[in-house]
Simulated assay, not measured.
Amino acid sequence: MASSLNDEPVVIVKNLSVKFGEIEVLKDINFKVYKKDFVGIIGPNGAGKSTLIRSILGMIPYEGEVILKGKVGYVPQLSSFNREFPISVYDFVRLPVRKEKNWKAIVDEVLTKVGLEGFGKRLVGTLSGGQYQRASLARAIVGKPDIVILDEPESGVDEMGKARFYDLLYELNEDLGITILMVSHDIGMVFEKCKTVMCLNKTLHCHGPTREISPEDIKKLFGEFDIWIRAHSHYEVEHAHENPDLSNLKENK
């Protein structure tokens, strides 16, 4: 059971299991996420990563117990929103604070924070993948949450946009003390930016500080993938034979 420097748990999951019909997707998941932690959830295709996130958020039925202590912001996958819908960035981001009289000032502040200053009147459909994810992050944090939960936020984003997005998350965690729980298929970025790693494949295989998760843990997690981690400027994960970028790994939905 992993603990950060702050020993106050803000996410508590007890004996969580999920079945879709007769198919057991998650079995007996137990963990705590502590205040100000930055947790990356990794695992192979079909491991149940997104299912875990949706369970925590109460979006799907589950067995067990989930306790969230504090306000939660959520950044879904890129494909979860119809970007052809004619909505401005202002209207997209302001949803959580739409009843606030000074909502425009609040939204302008958060757009500046995520690097989208001046984008308020743009239509969401005109944004690049990276810009759209930053707008989604702005919407998640505009209500000043204690916890932000993200589901594969780098999906569909180019490498430069991905790096910028992870830098933003790191800043929110370090500077504002927001607890972050994130599903990711970019294992290199997880090991560079996250404080804690959860290794999931239907059950929780390992959970601890990033520095304590070994290459052997990762090999066991991904099973048929012969992978390893090399330390350069950051951790880099590669396939042993074909050498593809494992950021292409995506969970089967």
Results as ranks from 00 to 15, higher is better:
G46A: 06
P153V: 10
F38R: 05
N6C: 12
F165E: 01
F81M: 03
E242A: 13
R94W: 00
L249V: 15
L249S: 01
D91Y: 08
E216H: 09
G115S: 09
V124G: 00
Y235T: 00
L127T: 08
I87E: 02
K202L: 05
F165Q: 01
K49I: 08
F38C: 03
Y74T: 06
Y34C: 04
E84L: 11
R211T: 09
F85R: 02
I147L: 11
L52V: 10
I187F: 06
V237S: 08
S247Y: 13
E63V: 04
E65N: 12
S80R: 09
H239G: 15
F191K: 08
L181Y: 10
V75F: 05
T179I: 10
K71D: 12
G188A: 11
G48L: 07
W103T: 00
G115H: 09
I67K: 15
K27R: 15
G70A: 11
E22Q: 13
D217V: 11
W228G: 14
V18M: 03
N173W: 02
D245T: 02
I149S: 03
G48Q: 09
V157M: 07
D108A: 12
G188V: 04
V10M: 08
L16Y: 07
S80T: 10
S184N: 11
F222I: 05
T51D: 11
K99W: 07
V237N: 01
L176P: 00
R139K: 14
N102K: 15
K220R: 14
L200R: 06
I106L: 15
F20N: 06
S88T: 15
K193L: 02
L200F: 04
H205L: 13
K219Q: 14
K195I: 03
A140D: 05
S136Q: 07
E152A: 04
I53D: 06
S136C: 10
T126F: 02
V124N: 00
A140P: 12
I56V: 14
K202V: 04
L116Y: 09
Y34H: 13
L95S: 05
N15P: 07
V33D: 04
V25P: 04
G208P: 07
K162M: 07
S247L: 13
A138L: 08
E174I: 11
G208Q: 07
I67M: 11
L26T: 03
F222A: 11
L137N: 00
N252W: 13
N102M: 06
D175N: 14
A2D: 09
G58Q: 06
P244G: 05
R134P: 03
V142F: 10
N82V: 02
E8Q: 12
K99C: 04
G120L: 08
F92L: 01
N6A: 05
M1A: 15
C194D: 00
Q77M: 08
L116A: 05
E63G: 09
I141M: 05
G21H: 13
E24F: 05
E159I: 13
E8N: 10
C194H: 03
M59E: 13
S214W: 12
I23D: 13
N102P: 07
E22R: 13
G46C: 09
I53E: 07
K253W: 11
